[in-house]
Structures are given as structure tokens and as C-alpha cells.
């Protein structure tokens, strides 16, 4: 048997209904490899409800509760209380919601779960729009991106507003653990799942989840695009333990964001000026992360 760098177990089954090259599908597969069979998932309305469960089938080899789109945070608090009341040992309760169900519709329930200090993991898999219903913009859609509700033309240049910073909102609740994960880096992904499992309390994953039809790129490019997102600084990889931030992937100089933007049809309309603005924002955010990491290391924050 070959030497594996991530767990061999498969708890996401084949035959599911995700599009070819689906980022969220790979995110789920890697996540369950790390979580193991004693996991209870709570999934609200999102792509994954449809992917997993054409009745009477399930693509998930763990217990799943289907819940309403706004209720993921509340449902994981309830599941944890029930598991405790039933004296279920070594059970990991995990909410698994999209960006719309987290950044927009489920935000108060997420805040409540973090504030109650629920011992559970909340996952936001971020494909940056309401993809299940056909690419409507969400709070997590990046500025300038085309969606069906932020069309390009007639003076409109994609989404006018910047992406909501969900990690900042989560970190303001001082969770036990929070991290950004990217399926293009499976070993870093798996290490963070293992790290989170060793910690008790409210934990949060922000997972980068490319969507070939929604972002308009070839399904074969999902992994390459994810690498480019991290290495250009669009989606930096880091974790925050006990309030201390550590960047988990640094490659020296950041790649130009123009490369990342040009690889996707949803940004095709952007001109040099808009690209330059995105570049300077990404640069500033990366510098801010580096500063925060340095300050946290020296204990001066």
C-alpha cells in the first residue's frame, strides 16, 4: 500500500449529486476523513443538502440532521446538549453550512452558538454565492464578481460591495479555535481538522470551495485555482488558537491577483484599474495578517 499523507477512510460516498469538479464535494470528503465516523453533521439548505440526499439515498456515512437555512448554529447547540444528555462519548457535533447560510441568513445563530461556548465545530464552506439556487450574490461574494443578481453591463460592474469578513466576526467571539482551510492543500487541511478535534469549545472553519459553473472556470482547474487563491493572498491560510494567529502557508512573494482573476469568467469584465485596486487591498490584508502574527508571537496584542 502506498504511503498516504491524509487518512484512508472514505465517509463521503460516490454517486452523490455534485457537479463535476465540485470544490464543496472535495471539502466534505477531506473533512470527514479527518472527523471519522462518530460525527453528527447538521446541514442547512445549501448545495450539500441536494448533493447528499436524493431520497432515499445518502452520500454521507455519518449521522446527518437536515435543518432550516438560518438554524445551523442553534441546531449544533441542541445536538451537543442532546449528545451530552444521552452520555454519548467521543461524538463530534459539526455544523456544515454554505456562505449564504452562514454570512447572511444564519449569522445570528452562528453568533449565538459561539457565544454559548457550544463544544462543536461550525464549518462555512465558501463558494461565494447562493450556488444551489443558481448563482445569486451573497454577503461572501467578492467585490466585482458577476452573479445573476449582480450582472455586468449598463454601468454595473459585478457586485459593488466588498466581501463580508466572516472570520473577523467569528474571531470577535474569541472561539477556542478558528482556521481557514483549502482543499487544494489536503495535508494542511487535515492537520487543522485534527488540531480542532484536540480542542474543546466552539471551533470554526472557513473552507475555500471553488464552484466551476458559478465562477465560470473549467472543472479540471478546481485544485489549481485553489492553490492560486492562497498563493496570491486572496485566501490566506491561517489558524487562531487561544487568540494567537499563525499563518500556515507562506511562499515568499505573493503571486499577482490578476492571475487568479483572469482564470475565472465571473471576473472577466474587470479592467486594469479594478484589478489594481483588488491587488492593493489583498496586499494590505496580507500585511495586516503578517503584523498580527508577529504581534501575537511576541505577546504584545
Amino acid at each position: 500500500m502506498a504511503k498516504l499523507t491524509i487518512p484512508a477512510q472514505e465517509l463521503m460516498y460516490s454517486g452523490h449529486a455534485a457537479c463535476p469538479g465540485c470544490g464543496p464535494a472535495l471539502a466534505m470528503r477531506l473533512l470527514l476523513k479527518g472527523l471519522g465516523p462518530r460525527t453528527i453533521l447538521s446541514i442547512p439548505a445549501c448545495c450539500w443538502t441536494v448533493i447528499a440526499t436524493p431520497y432515499p439515498t445518502t452520500a454521507l456515512g455519518v449521522a446527518v440532521l437536515d435543518n432550516a437555512i438560518e438554524a445551523t448554529g442553534a441546531s449544533v447547540s441542541g445536538l451537543r446538549a442532546a449528545a451530552d444528555a444521552m452520555h454519548l462519548k467521543d461524538v463530534e457535533v459539526v455544523g456544515f453550512a454554505g456562505d449564504g447560510g452562514t454570512a447572511d441568513i444564519g449569522l445570528q445563530a452562528l453568533s449565538g452558538m459561539l457565544e454559548r461556548r457550544t463544544d462543536a465545530i461550525y464549518v462555512m464552506y465558501d463558494n461565494e454565492a447562493y450556488m444551489n439556487t443558481g448563482v445569486q450574490r451573497s454577503g461572501a461574494t467578492p467585490q466585482g464578481a458577476w452573479t445573476t443578481t449582480t450582472p455586468v453591463g449598463g454601468g454595473v460592474r459585478g457586485k459593488p460591495e466588498p466581501k463580508k469578513d466572516v472570520m473577523a466576526i467569528v474571531l470577535a467571539h474569541r472561539p477556542a479555535y478558528a482556521a481557514t482551510l483549502n482543499p487544494s492543500f489536503p495535508e494542511d487541511f487535515d492537520r487543522k481538522v485534527a488540531r480542532a478535534r484536540s480542542i474543546e469549545g466552539p471551533r470554526f472553519f472557513h473552507i475555500f470551495a471553488p464552484c466551476p459553473p458559478g465562477w465560470k472556470f473549467d472543472s479540471a482547474e478546481t485544485i489549481a485555482l485553489g492553490r492560486l487563491a492562497t498563493d496570491s493572498g486572496i485566501f490566506p491560510l491561517y489558524e487562531v488558537v487561544d487568540g494567537r494567529l499563525r499563518i500556515t502557508r507562506k511562499t515568499g512573494e505573493l503571486k499577482p491577483v490578476a492571475e487568479y482573476l483572469a482564470a475565472q469568467g465571473r471576473f472577466r469584465h474587470l479592467g486594469a484599474e479594478e484589478t489594481a485596486r483588488i491587488q492593493s487591498e489583498v496586499r494590505a490584508e496580507w500585511d495586516r495578517l503578517l503584523r498580527r502574527e508577529r504581534d501575537d508571537l511576541s505577546g504584545s496584542h
Binding site: Y13, G15, A17, T57, T58
Partner: peptide, 13 residues
């Protein structure tokens, strides 16, 4: 009880 318990591997894609 569980409502969906057939593995999705019965579906060939």
C-alpha cells in the same frame, strides 16, 4: 428513525 439510509453508491453518475 433515519429517513435516508441507502448509500448513494446505488446511483451511477
Amino acid at each position: 428513525g433515519p429517513v435516508a439510509s441507502v448509500s448513494s453508491e446505488v446511483i451511477h453518475t
